[in-house]
Nucleic acid binder design. Structure first.
Lengths: 204, 204
DNA sequence: TAACAATGTCAGATATACTGAACACTTTGT
DNA sequence: ACAAAGTGTTCAGTATATCTGACATTGTTA
């Protein structure tokens, strides 16, 4: 999020004569809009407010109501949380590629869970390459944690239980659920199962 | 933040006869205020607005401006991000399993991008099963958007470019980077490449 | 060059949020 | 029982946000 946004933000900061305002809504909106290559009028059309409203918000000459800011962001689209949590600081040069043989395995017992990007400072997700050998099971006491998880079976089959419901996932099938619901992974089949999955947030 | 807040929120939800409002600012404020054992007047005094303002906000009879909501929250104190990221557990019954043949394909041109959980109301991530046929390319003008993305190559090989750096991903290799950095996916090899990937946030 | 479309800005009119002072109700203390 | 202090709500007046409809500027096309 940082590089382009940052330059844009600093540019605007330098040029504009603006009041010192801890949370510069106008600046943020302008940055977001530019990032998505939208004009004030285009964004206005998509969001259901007028272009002048957007102009005034961006110039910090008004403090928009929640409802109108929400309207405006819906044209991006972007949530209020995302909007306010945009951070303006630099991101260091991070590693990009993680080779298959050097991923950190955080699996338990027979289950292998290799994490992509484990060394990164900031991480929103835990993206993993998991292998459930025949018979593997995350256990009867179901897992629960904040966030969401999704995955796709790329080899074999898997039994997934989410809140009373038991599903059989064939090769190629995917899943997506709230991690707050009790869940369990189990491979009762003869062949091993390989699963690419992602959970958010990164630490659970 | 969730457990106590949640019960409180759901209690309020059950008791109050409220309009259906996607983002119930009033409800959230009331919950937060109660959590901190403050009266409307007390919070008003601490935050520099009047008690009637708080009353009206909580009853959703107005949609507060950013500046006044920020003022109000400063009396807690709580940031806008924290405020809006409080989740009101709907506990709706959501679909969990998405079959391989029924995933929505949002790919462009020859590139196939099948999304897991596309029908979900709330989604933090876009989890996808992508296929880059031999020669496929996301184009010379590099992609940029907020968020992060990660992936693992499960078949074939792929060329990934992130901010000047070009990487060759072998089968099994993964990647993880900030989506704000210009990036490009390209398959210059003979065999097709299949990639399981995840980007956050869901809409990019 | 002229005509045209697209950009961001501004001013007057209108809609909405916010204030200040009441009101009715409940709780606490004597 | 009664006051006194606390609770949330309401309403007219004021402050502010938003819309409508213009304007000036830039870039594109003929």
């Amino acid at each position: 999020m940082s590089d382009i946004l940052n330059t844009l933000l600093t540019n605007v900061l330098q040029s504009g004569s603006r009041e010192t305002y801890a949370l510069d809504v106008g600046l943020r909106l302008k940055a977001v809009r530019k990032l998505h290559n939208l004009s004030q009028r285009e964004l206005a059309k998509r969001s259901g407010v007028t272009n002048s409203t957007i102009s005034m918000i961006e110039k910090n000459s008004v403090s928009p109501s929640i409802s109108s800011l929400k309207k405006v962001l819906s044209g991006i689209p972007m949530s209020l949380v995302e909007f306010f949590s945009m951070d303006v600081d630099e991101s260091a040069v991070e590693r990009v590629v993680y080779r298959a043989n050097e991923m950190l395995d955080i699996g338990m017992g027979e289950i292998s869970m290799k994490v992509v990007g484990k060394s990164r400072a900031k991480r929103d997700m835990a993206f993993m390459d998991e292998v459930y050998p025949s018979g593997a099971d995350t256990g009867m006491e179901m897992l629960k944690h904040e966030g969401e998880e999704a995955g796709i079976v790329v080899e074999g089959r898997l039994e997934l239980t989410v809140a009373d419901q038991v599903y059989i996932l064939e090769t190629g099938d995917g899943y997506y659920f709230d991690s707050t619901q009790p869940h369990r992974f189990h491979n009762p089949f003869e062949s091993d199962c390989r699963l690419i999955s992602c959970t958010t947030p990164a630490n659970f």
